[in-house]
């Protein structure tokens, strides 16, 4: 009952994205309708070319759909200007990319506070301390990214994503470049943000082990939703992926 009253953190309604024109047109997304509930860790999975990254980009306001609507909470993104979208990303959305998350000329502390610095706001010190505590980087604050390992860099990215106290965090293959141990650690942090801080995390991944850390997995194939799995295990995910692959073939 509660879930019906709460609006979804992010919503896509009949979302379509077409690249190119005429004969060379590619339908990356084909009338996708999906909801991503609050305080949940959702994974989006699918074979390459399924449109999962495109879906995330549209949800996050990084890309414009060809048709359909995108909602962040109650706010429809289609009517916003570039500056408004930018401010939205700054204040209400957190990002973690697969690699190259950090600015090499800024220190760890500055990278974490980046969205806040961009908006000219005075960072909330106690919140930043909490966030830094969660990712356990208190001893690395003055270092430059080049002095950190891959796993540590991703943790800084997580801290930054949390810094502005966003409504939703989007993660694009966050464990893609990490070894299995750092990857598992990172997924643990992401889980923590959901269970302890009440964040909403939407993660795009192709790794079944990573998806298994999520509360539910939404599958995408050929630009369309292909079902979802709540509380999946890695095996179940693998099976489902195989099915999707066979369907394509």
């Amino acid at each position: 009952m509660e879930t019906l009253i709460k609006t979804a953190a992010a919503r896509a309604v009949a979302l379509t994205k077409i690249y190119g024109a005429g004969e060379a047109a590619v339908r990356a997304l084909d009338r996708v309708t999906a909801e991503f509930p609050r305080e949940r860790f959702t994974a989006i999975m699918g074979p390459s070319g399924s449109g999962k990254s495109t879906l995330m980009h549209c949800l996050a306001g990084l890309d414009q759909p060809s048709s359909g609507q995108v909602f962040l909470g109650d706010l429809e993104l289609g009517s916003l200007s570039d500056t408004q979208l930018t401010v939205l990303r700054r204040e209400r959305v957190g990002f973690i990319f697969q690699s190259f998350n950090l600015l090499p000329t800024l220190s760890v502390a500055e990278n974490i506070a980046l969205p806040l610095l961009l908006s000219g706001r005075k960072p909330d010190r106690s919140w930043l301390d909490t966030v830094i505590g969660i990712v356990r980087l208190g001893d690395r604050l003055s270092h430059r990214p080049s002095e950190l390992s891959g796993g540590q860099q991703q943790r800084v990215a997580v801290a930054r994503a949390l810094a502005s106290q966003p409504e939703i965090i989007f993660a694009d293959e966050p464990t893609g470049n990490l070894d299995s141990r750092s990857g598992a650690q990172l997924l643990g942090f992401l889980r923590q943000t959901v269970s302890e801080l009440g964040q909403t995390v939407v993660m795009v991944t192709h790794d079944p082990a990573a998806a298994a850390a999520a509360d539910s997995v939404t599958f995408l194939a050929d630009g369309r939703i292909a079902g979802d799995l709540p509380h999946p295990g890695a095996d179940a995910i693998l099976d489902r992926l195989k099915q999707l692959g066979e369907r394509e073939a």
């Binding site: 570039d82 990303r89 990319f97 998350n101 600015l103 969205p115 930054r160």
Partner: peptide, 16 residues
């Protein structure tokens, strides 16, 4: 390019 892309994604406006 990638740094600027990151900055824009994280919330730097065009004017900034």
């Amino acid at each position: 390019t990638r740094e600027i892309g990151l900055l824009r994604a994280v919330g730097e406006t065009r004017a900034q």
